[in-house]
Design a protein around this nucleic acid. Structure first.
Lengths: 112, 112
DNA sequence: TTTATTGTTCGCAAAAATACGAACAATAAA
DNA sequence: TTTATTGTTCGTATTTTTGCGAACAATAAA
């Protein structure tokens, strides 16, 4: 009956931001390019620019990217510090949540 | 203008399943308990049992947990193989997506 | 100054997610 | 067999997400 912990909320928040293929594609692209203007991101995605802008906004609000205005263009980039934070949070989560051998009775068979 | 890759869809799919604090809390609980019956999970969450059941269904459909019927009860458990798969997928993703020094022009200052 | 270019915001529509109580099915207990 | 326990499914309401075109603001170019 307790509420969720800050940690749980934090993990869920990052995960939610990563929970759409367009946003994953954006992050993949940002990591692969020399430059990362909005227009280029838009060019490699199968969605309208208004939608791209929305996804970028969500990633920015989650802290995963940053956007810098450069003339009439906007240069986007992964936010390194928060990215490292997210990496650690997920790594810890996957480590904490291993179903230790014997911790529950469902190890006999792994069926679905 | 291309569509998303299978990899991108896969990452997003797992992330989406992790994108709610109740589901994170469920996974935390499953990893911490000797037994993991539905009722116990319900007891530690601040939501109705119908909602708990729904979240468990989503986690199961994402492949992250499994449920075994035991008498009138259902014993839930993390699905080890898929859990490892997700762990690797996320670790790779966070490794691939580092904004390499000099890869784009936004390293001078890290403001938001 | 006028005209392009660039990207955000607005307004809206459609779809999906979240949540609940009630009804239900299945097993166990009396 | 009847009753209680356990968890899922159904139906529904509310909210959030996703997506688009059009309008807009800001800078750059002509």
């Amino acid at each position: 009956m307790k509420e969720y912990t800050d940690k749980q909320a934090s993990i869920a928040h990052f995960a939610k931001a990563l929970g759409h293929p367009a946003r994953i594609a954006i992050l993949h692209y940002l990591a692969s390019q020399e430059t990362c203007f909005f227009g280029e991101i838009h060019d490699v995605l199968p969605i309208a620019k208004a939608t791209v802008s929305q996804h970028l906004k969500e990633l920015k609000e989650a802290g995963l990217i940053q956007g810098d205005i450069e003339g009439p263009k906007v240069r986007y980039c992964i936010h390194k510090e928060n990215w490292e934070l997210a990496r650690v949070i997920f790594a810890d989560f996957f480590n904490d949540c291993v179903c230790k051998k014997g911790s529950c009775g469902c190890h006999e068979e792994q069926h679905d």
